[in-house]
């Protein structure tokens, strides 16, 4: 759309052709104010008129944590290896919440923002990006809570510090989890705009997905013969890398990591292509 034709000095041109590859990066940058504003709006809307405000970002995982420990650890007795269950579940919950909340919110982009999209133009990718960014901030807050608790464990129980050089890979693993959330979210956003019944598929899918991702169990407890199948999930090695970086325990191979990286990039490029090819045409469909 932003093509400058050579013959004349037109600034922009609008026609029926949409491109797979024109991701309008420059335009996104021009709308960075809106991006920041939308992140702010996300937090204001979620915590305005609540008693505890942004503290909910921390209470939510803590409440989930208590439930998971009671059910999965005490009742069912899933081993968390040498990692204290509190720490084990907390990182799992934080990462999973990050992925699933990003995915769900992004997949509703067109449904929730339809009215605004019909009235004003801005690069539509701003919405998914601001959703993802807000969830990154939540994740960072939860990770700082995790750090505090880890320090607490070290002080109280003399828990050995198992952090290691894989810490350097932690931001990359988190980034890749985020990219997975964005990509799958974008795919479903385009698909659900066409077929609303896919919103049900998305919400059931994400619930089932949690059980094939090492959130409540370590890959180590998965029987050998299922491990190859479980490794098909590109999120699995990423979750394991995060646990390994923090607690020195996790099961992954370089091949799995390479596979995960490859699938993530493939998903990202594919979803971005589909999104940009379809986004303007969707305005006539939603």
């Amino acid at each position: 759309m932003e093509q400058v034709s050579k013959a004349t000095e037109w600034g922009w041109e609008l026609n029926s052709q949409t491109s797979w590859w024109d991701w309008k990066v420059k335009e996104l940058w021009e709308y960075r104010n809106l991006w920041l504003r939308l992140i702010r709006k996300d937090f204001l809307l979620n915590y305005q008129q609540t008693l505890l405000g942004p503290l909910w970002i921390l209470f939510q995982p803590i409440l989930t944590l208590v439930t998971y420990i009671l059910v999965f650890n005490k009742l069912i007795g899933i081993s968390t290896g040498n990692v204290p269950p509190v720490l084990f579940y907390l990182i799992g919950i934080a990462l999973w919440t990050f992925f699933s909340e990003s995915f769900i919110a992004i997949s509703f982009t067109f449904i929730h923002y339809e009215r605004i999209f019909q009235k004003v133009y801005f690069p539509r990718l701003i919405i998914p990006l601001s959703i993802l960014s807000a969830n990154v901030i939540r994740l960072l807050l939860q990770l700082s809570l995790l750090t505090i608790i880890t320090v607490g464990y070290w002080l109280l129980y003399r828990n050995p510090v198992m952090m290691n050089s894989w810490m350097l890979a932690l931001p990359i693993a988190i980034l890749l989890i985020g990219v997975n959330g964005l990509s799958t979210g974008l795919l479903f956003a385009v698909l659900t705009a066409h077929y609303r019944d896919l919103t049900n598929v998305a919400s059931i899918g994400i619930r089932l997905m949690m059980f094939v991702t090492p959130v409540i169990y370590p890959m180590a407890v998965v029987p050998e013969r299922f491990r190859q199948v479980a490794a098909l999930n590109p999120l699995s090695p990423l979750f394991e890398v995060c646990r390994f970086a923090l607690f020195g325990e996790g099961t992954f191979t370089p091949t799995q990591l390479a596979y995960s990286l490859f699938v993530t990039l493939l998903l990202f490029v594919g979803s971005m292509m589909l999104f940009h090819k379809r986004v303007d045409k969707l305005m006539d469909v939603i």
């Binding site: 759309m1 609008l14 026609n15 029926s16 303007d280 305005m283």
Partner: peptide, 19 residues
């Protein structure tokens, strides 16, 4: 107006502009 505002695309034809 929607087409000129870039909300939706024309099915045929082209709109050029500056600013």
């Amino acid at each position: 107006l929607k087409i000129i505002s870039r909300i939706t695309r024309p099915s045929q034809g082209v709109i050029r502009g500056k600013g």
